[in-house]
Amino acid sequence: MSPGSKNNPFPAKKMILAGRKQYLWLRARMIQAMRLFFIEHDYLEVETPQLIPAPAPEPHIHAISADNLFLHTSPELCMKRLLAAGYPKIFQIGKCFRHAERGNLHMPEFTMLEWYRTGIDYMALMEECEDMIRSVSRRLGADNKINYQGTEIDLKCPWERLSVSEAFDRFVSLTPETAIGKGIFDRVMVENIEPNLGMARPTILYDYPAPLAALARLKPENKRLAERFEIYFAGLELANGFSELTDAREQRARFERDRKQRSDLDKQVYPMPEKFLKALEKMPRAAGIALGVDRLAMIFADRSEIDDVVTFTPEEV
């Protein structure tokens, strides 16, 4: 049936889908460019299972269950098992699934790019992420300047480095620790801090309070902070990376803490990821990052809604 046919039962939807063509082309070219970057940098592309028995017990990320298993919320645990098994540079582009996340930046099924590399820490990974996005931008012909929702963002190095405590100091009269104590850290982040980040150039927000890191290493010189960072473009959160925690005992303790928190929040408590914890004993020093592919496509396509850069939204399937 042709799109203009009178017998078409969903003309409006057809129009919306057809209208996304230029963004879907851009998205496809962007993913090809990402892949090329990692291939040129000797990364192995992997596909880990999406159906897993034990997701990481993040307090605020909820898995969708399927056939007595779970759809993964991120490929993190399986990819780290690969690091431990002797794969030093790996990347994956694939679907992840999170229950009840829907908004102009969220879909319960979305595409994630994750990459992991042994022998580096979060600072080196920040630089690699800058290189990767600059390389993608060049290949898309956007060069070093992109315009996102009226904000011109310069990708030329170096991107702004702003610690979480500096950000709280600059934008609100609170410390991150006080905000956590009052239970308003996330709200302050969303309402007062995030809208200011990544305005003239991308911002890398780093050194999160230790309680906000499930799988990141703590700073050796300051155990109250974790070596974790997030990347922002014009207020939009794009990626989350960290130096990986490699202490299996410490990891087990954090999982116990998070499992208890899930139970206190009346959320399903997943089985302990024992195979991951076993592998962690042999995992070398490494850093890894997860980047929202749909969101990067939104940035390059200058769209404010995630709906515009996917083939079908959950409501349209």
């Binding site: 605020h60 908004g103 102009n104 930046l105 996330d186 982040m189 499930a214």
Partner: peptide, 9 residues
């Protein structure tokens, strides 16, 4: 709908 980092909805 907002969800900062790994924070709450």
């Amino acid at each position: 709908f907002s969800k900062p980092g790994k924070g709450q909805s």
